[in-house]
């Protein structure tokens, strides 16, 4: 069992770091709202999702302490993201190619 109990260090970030992350998250929330009022066409979704992913990363890395976690915990996070990628990618094999040939009978 020793192989995986790689002594998690109970590293605690300073209060200043947490405040900085909080301020960044609030700023990104305002930015999301502001961008929603600007018509960027195709890029509206891209930018909204980009901001959302940045916020998710900040929460996971700082508030959930993934930054200072064991390799096993990081593997769990990567595994979760990988499975989300499987869900999106294989679903897109349908949605991205559905119109390439017509549906018989239509």
């Amino acid at each position: 069992m020793q192989d995986e109990i790689d002594s998690p260090q109970h590293h605690v970030d300073s209060a200043g770091t947490y405040v900085a992350v909080l301020v960044t998250l609030l700023f990104l929330t305002i930015l999301t709202t502001a961008v929603a009022y600007v018509d960027l066409g195709y890029f509206s979704t891209v930018i909204a999702l980009g901001i959302a992913c940045t916020k998710m990363l900040l929460v996971a890395l700082f508030f959930m302490h993934i930054r200072h976690s064991t390799k096993l915990t990081k593997l769990v996070v990567v595994g979760g993201l990988l499975w989300l990628a499987i869900l999106l990618l294989l679903t897109l094999t349908d949605f991205a190619t559905r119109t390439w040939i017509g549906v018989p009978g239509r």
């Binding site: 499987i86 294989l90 094999t93 349908d94 190619t97 559905r98 040939i101 549906v103």
Partner: peptide, 22 residues
């Protein structure tokens, strides 16, 4: 087991290309 679910959708108007992959 996570890579095969589309075989339940072969007649659902799922893309034929997705059908091939699944």
């Amino acid at each position: 087991g996570f890579l095969v679910w589309g075989h339940h959708l072969f007649v659902s108007t799922q893309s034929a290309f997705a059908g091939l992959v699944f």
